[in-house]
Every structure is written in C-alpha cells, then in structure tokens.
C-alpha cells in the first residue's frame, strides 16, 4: 500500500473516532483541540498538531450544537487541514484556510443525511415499535449512527487521498501577502466565536463581569485559569448573597 493511501486510511479512522464522540457520552473529543494533535501524533509532528488544534479551537469557539442548529463539521476540517499543513511543511494559517471551508462543505452533506437518511430509519423504527420489536428499534438507531459516521469518515479519507497532489502544490504557490493576511485573519477570527458566546449570556446586569475579566488580563496579565478562579469566588459571593437579601426582605415583611 503506498504512503498516501495508508495516510488516508489512518485519517479516516481518526475521523471515525472523532465522530463517535456523540456515541461515547458527547465527550467533545471531536473538537479540534483534541483531534488535530491526534493527526499530528500519527503524522510525526505532535507539536504542530497541538498548535493548529489550539488555533482552530479558538476560531470555532462559538460553534456548538444547540437546539436545531448544527455547527460546521469540525472533524473533517481539522483533520484535513492539519494533515496537509504537516505533509507540505506549512504553518497554522494554511491549516485554517483549508479547515474552515471544508468544515462548511461537509456540513452540507451531513445536513442531507440528517434530513433524509435518519428520518427514513426513524419511520421504519415506528413500524418495529408497533410490533413491540425491541431489536428492530435498536437496529435503526445503530444503523443511523454507524451509517452516518462511516460515510463522513470515508469522505475525510477520500478527500485527503484525491486532494493530496493538487492541494500540496497550491499551498506552496500562494503569494506571501496572502499567507500573511491569513495569519492576521487567524488572530482575528476568535473575536467572532467570543462574540457568539457572549451573546448567549450577556445582559446589562452582567456586563461588568465581562469587563472585569478583560481588565484583569489586560492590566495585570492574569492567565485565563487565574481569571476563572477569581470568577468562581465572585460567582459564589454574588449568586450566594442573593438568598440572604431575599430572606431578609421576607423577614421584614413578616414582623
């Protein structure tokens, strides 16, 4: 088996492992911060994998499944982006430039599976249910899981195998200002993710806590972990204090 084919198979297996996170307790090992280092490990450059993983994680900070909205397919993007960056000796910006569009493309395919294929199995499960057939219902669930995740993994392997010759040559012929521009973009993109997250929880009452976190790091250079620990203390003080105030108010009314 030639090298490219072998690498494609390995990437397909990593992809399958990543996709299966939702079968193993939604452990989030499908996130780039874990998947990219795995690619790095198997392609002989663990450090680069870890660093690419960190950047992609920042960019997709605001991407997570909530209700009926699905995030870009991070598994395929992170795996193919990291693999090409390592084999063609490129740095993080190249991985990002590949990962972002790939993740959006594969999501379209995944969306079709989730719109047609799984609902079809679901209606078959209804029939088994009517007959009181446990096995049939279980089978539909498992076919949905293995079918979808198997197909997506095959796309990752195939995409790498077919794209390898052209993508490597394209990557090495990109003009310098574009690569540098991509580098600037990688630094800026996390702003979108952070804004998406903040929009979920921010309101006027909570704005000071956001600014406090920002200022602690800007002026006092406290790390994220440090701010998180301060955050725990402040959350305990603020959210814990509420009850006493309410209790006091109730007592006042009674007497």
């Amino acid at each position: 088996m030639d090298t490219a084919l072998f690498q494609a198979v390995v990437l397909g297996l990593i992809a399958f492992f990543g996709y299966m996170h939702s079968f193993m307790g939604s452990t989030m090992h499908n996130r780039p911060i874990i998947i990219a280092p795995l690619v790095g490990l198997l392609f002989g450059d663990l450090q680069k994998g870890i660093m690419i993983g960190a950047t992609l994680e920042l960019i997709w900070m605001g991407a997570f499944p909530i209700g009926a909205s699905n995030p870009p397919d991070m598994v395929s993007g992170a795996i193919i982006g990291t693999a090409f960056a390592i084999i063609s000796n490129q740095d993080t910006p190249a991985a990002v430039a590949l990962a972002v569009p790939i993740a959006s493309l594969v999501l379209i395919f995944d969306n079709m599976l989730m719109t047609f294929f799984i609902p079809f199995l679901s209606s078959k499960a209804d029939k088994y249910a009517e007959e009181g057939d446990f096995r049939g219902v279980e089978k539909m669930h498992l076919i949905a899981v293995l079918g979808v995740k198997g197909l997506l993994s095959a796309i990752v392997a195939l995409g790498f195998y077919l794209g390898a010759p052209s993508v490597t040559s394209i990557l090495s012929s990109i003009p310098e200002f574009v690569t540098e521009g991509l580098n600037v973009a990688t630094g800026l993109l996390p702003a979108i993710g952070f804004a998406m997250l903040a929009k979920m929880i921010m309101n006027k009452k909570l704005l000071p806590f956001f600014l406090l976190g920002f200022l602690l790091t800007s002026y006092m250079k406290i790390s994220v972990l440090g701010v998180a620990l301060f955050g725990v203390v402040i959350a305990m003080l603020v959210a814990g204090a509420d009850k006493k105030i309410e209790g006091g108010a109730v007592d006042d009314n009674e007497f």
């Binding site: 702003a191 903040a198 920002f214 790390s223 959350a235 305990m236």
Partner: peptide, 24 residues
C-alpha cells in the same frame, strides 16, 4: 443561582480570553 453564578464565571473567562487570545 446556579445559572447566575455560571453566567458570571463564563463572562469573566470570555473577557479574559478577549484580552489574551485575539491577536490584532
């Protein structure tokens, strides 16, 4: 109280990351 507490914690962490993880 759990929701309020975690929102405070979450926003402080986001604030810290805005300062240290956006490169511009």
């Amino acid at each position: 109280r759990l929701t309020e507490g975690t929102s405070i914690l979450g926003l402080m962490v986001i604030g810290s990351m805005v300062s240290s993880m956006i490169y511009f």
